[in-house]
Design a protein around this nucleic acid. Structure first.
Length: 372
DNA sequence: AATCCTTTGAAGGGA
DNA sequence: TCCCTTCAAAGGATT
């Protein structure tokens, strides 16, 4: 069980996450890893025969002008919105949040305060945080997990009891303030503001898919989520903000179809939305950095991209990793508060995996990555 | 259509 | 306490 009550507030459960650093601490090792990370792209590409054939004539130039323009428009559009974020940004986070460079997705970005020489890399040191409507917590991405918990009148949020463990879960913050949305907030949330989907990076210029078009109307965007947990009487969550953590068990969000069609009771039950696991630090890092890797190395295969990201993750400094651990900790914290009875075990068996020889896989992996 | 691949970290269960 | 398994995201590849 996470140590939720270790320090109260945002200090909850921080220590355990830092344990992961112990094996990666040496600074010289970091330098070496940083050195080979420059080569990892070429290494992986060379290992991918098909990819290398495609990209042998150097990397195609990444067209960013459109993206930058969208970014500028987005920032202008939401400048006023962001001005209100100071109200909900905690002191230790002060000054860390700023507008996301990703257009069409309302990230708050965490510029890296630890970057050497004060240099800020284009995107490597920014952490995507879902932007919230006025008066909402930066981690609002996890708030509307369920209608019940999102209801401002749900007073039990401040202190909930886990139905399974009986562990008393204290609220580090007055979450009711986070849940409270401005009246009419549903209609005020534009498609460009809403985080109705997974984080989407504007990578159309480099061929990365954009599963959710920014041109979608609010209704069309929200229509991906239609379960009673998140939908109001009109087929929408009372807040109008569905969350990516809730997806129909029948498939991915983008595959979800709310069209009413005859279904058996069994089918309906089988399509109950699944409360997904909160993302860990590395997953958050991957979500942010995937687009950058794709743009840099023109790779699309996630397995190869994840290999690169895994190595880059290890190349990060402790401070850089700490940002993601902190975000992940807050995500878990909110997830636990919103779903006290949820267990990671609940989703076991949702994926049917084939058994494979792990040792054989490991040896193969070692060989393929032996390029440093 | 379903699953695999590939990464790290969290969580849970069994020994 | 340790070890193992599963899942979380992603999308092309494979079955």
């Amino acid at each position: 069980m996470p140590q939720l009550n270790s320090g109260g507030g945002d200090d909850l459960g921080a220590n355990d996450e830092m344990i992961a650093f112990k094996d990666e601490g040496e600074q010289d090792e970091k330098i070496q890893e940083n050195a080979f990370t420059e080569r990892d792209l070429a290494d992986l590409k060379s290992s991918l025969v098909n990819e290398s054939e495609i990209s042998q004539n150097s990397h195609p130039p990444v067209v960013r002008t459109g993206q930058q323009e969208e970014q500028r428009v987005y920032e202008d559009k939401h400048r006023e919105h962001l001005e209100h974020l100071d109200d909900v940004t905690k002191p230790q986070d002060g000054g860390m949040y700023k507008a996301s460079p990703y257009s069409g997705y309302p990230f708050l970005m965490l510029p890296d305060p630890y970057h050497p020489n004060g240099q800020v890399s284009p995107s490597a040191n920014k952490v995507a945080v879902v932007q919230q409507p006025h008066g909402m917590h930066p981690l609002t991405s996890l708030l509307p997990y369920s209608n019940e918990h999102f209801n401002p009148s749900t007073s039990h949020l401040t202190s909930d009891m886990s139905q399974k463990t009986g562990v008393h879960r204290h609220q580090p913050h007055d979450l009711t303030s986070f849940y409270s949305l401005p009246s009419g907030g549903v209609g005020q949330i534009t498609s460009s503001m809403g985080w109705q989907s997974q984080p989407v990076y504007p990578l159309s210029s480099c061929g990365f898919r954009q599963p959710y078009s920014s041109s979608l109307t609010s209704n069309s965007s929200y229509s991906r989520f239609s379960h009673s947990l998140i939908m109001g009487p009109s087929g929408m969550h009372p807040t109008g903000i569905p969350h990516p953590a809730i997806v129909p068990s029948s498939g991915r969000q983008e595959q979800f179809d709310i069209k009413p069609h005859p279904e058996s009771k069994r089918d309906r039950e089988s399509k109950k939305p699944v409360i997904k696991k909160p993302l860990n630090a590395f997953m958050l890092y991957m979500k942010e950095m995937r687009a950058k890797v794709i743009a840099e190395c023109t790779l699309k295969e996630s397995a190869a991209i994840n290999q690169i990201l895994g190595r880059r993750w290890h190349a990060l400094t402790r401070e850089e990793q700490a940002k993601y651990y902190e975000l992940a900790r807050k995500e878990r914290q909110l997830h636990m508060q919103l779903y006290p009875s949820w267990s990671a075990r609940d989703n076991y068996g949702k994926k049917k995996r084939r058994k494979r020889d792990k040792q054989q896989q490991d040896s193969a992996t070692d060989n393929s990555l032996d390029c440093s």
